[in-house]
Design a protein around this nucleic acid. Sequence first.
DNA 1: CCAGAAAGTCAACGCTTGTTGGCAAACAAG
DNA 2: CTTGTTTGCCAACAAGCGTTGACTTTCTGG
Lengths: 188, 188
Amino acid sequence: MPAHETVRPKRSDATRAAILSAARERFAADGYERATIRAIAADAGIDPAMVMRYYGSKDRLFAAAAEFDLRLPDVATIPRSRLGVTLVGHFLDRWEGDETMLALLRAAVTNESAAEKMRAIFATQVGPAAVRLGHPPAQARTRAGLIATQMLGLALCRYVLRLPPIVAMSRQDLVTWLGPTVQRYLTR
Amino acid sequence: MPAHETVRPKRSDATRAAILSAARERFAADGYERATIRAIAADAGIDPAMVMRYYGSKDRLFAAAAEFDLRLPDVATIPRSRLGVTLVGHFLDRWEGDETMLALLRAAVTNESAAEKMRAIFATQVGPAAVRLGHPPAQARTRAGLIATQMLGLALCRYVLRLPPIVAMSRQDLVTWLGPTVQRYLTR
DNA sequence: CCAGAAAGTCAACGCTTGTTGGCAAACAAG
DNA sequence: CTTGTTTGCCAACAAGCGTTGACTTTCTGG
């Protein structure tokens, strides 16, 4: 197989993608243990055995389905005074457009490898942003953690627990209320 | 049985208590579905059938084990400027001394009746506190929800996900950082 | 001391789960 | 057309689950 040619898409790619998409949905809706391979396979319209063939085990399927990048903007390009509101808005966009984060959050509560993935996201994606703002590394890690408490708490209350007052709030309301909090955690 | 006499403690009360205590531990450590009746019974040193006899079903056992009262102090007696730090300290005390809240949080992510219980706690215990501070009811509910995002987010990161920077922080650090946030959510 | 109730044990049920191996159909290459 | 490989389905497994009913042991009131 010549390396310079584009690899021809395999016939099974569509199935793989269908499995991954169904898996994200189920993990997001039900959490790790209640999302069954059989249900995921049924959603994808294929046999449970195919899930095993392509992903090996439920654990590895979850690992593949929960790959997530926050895609944080470069904080250096954001006006200092608008850091908080911008980031809160970005988190909301990133979560509502893709249920991967919800799957990860629901699973992380009872699954250790999912929890580890969540820790890695804040350590490797939010932490460096705080460093770029001029904070020493140790302090940057703390600030990233504080942002996690507020933003994951928001996700928990709005999407998982569905607290009525939080569900009722508009995107703008949330940005207005939580923006200053994140601003303070990031800039003192 | 004369009503004026104290009811003699039944012989089974110790067992009932042991089951409840083991159940709280397991639900807190493993979440609702991974905490098995068999494991709870083993921890309590009795047969799984006893759990069924005394609590009827796993659902009802959980309901009994997750009864929780925040025991919020009367906000009217707290100096206005210290409301935030006082409440954050109180939440921390209430959570570290009793794993019921952790059991409830872990279970609420995948169990609807646990989620309902969590919603009720903030609606009936935190909401009224905001009303007592002079806010109109609708606004008080919103404020209680905002406090939930921050305090449940803290519990999630510190006790469930175990984010290292949040685990490393002292009680005093947390009060200092989160106090002003809760203060703002409560007093504008 | 004795009958009846309470407390506790034991073995099993029906069901669901992740996972496996064998076999049929569809495709690709010669 | 004939191979060999890829893709897929089917049936079954071993294990674990919540739950049940029959049985034995322990206590208690008269």
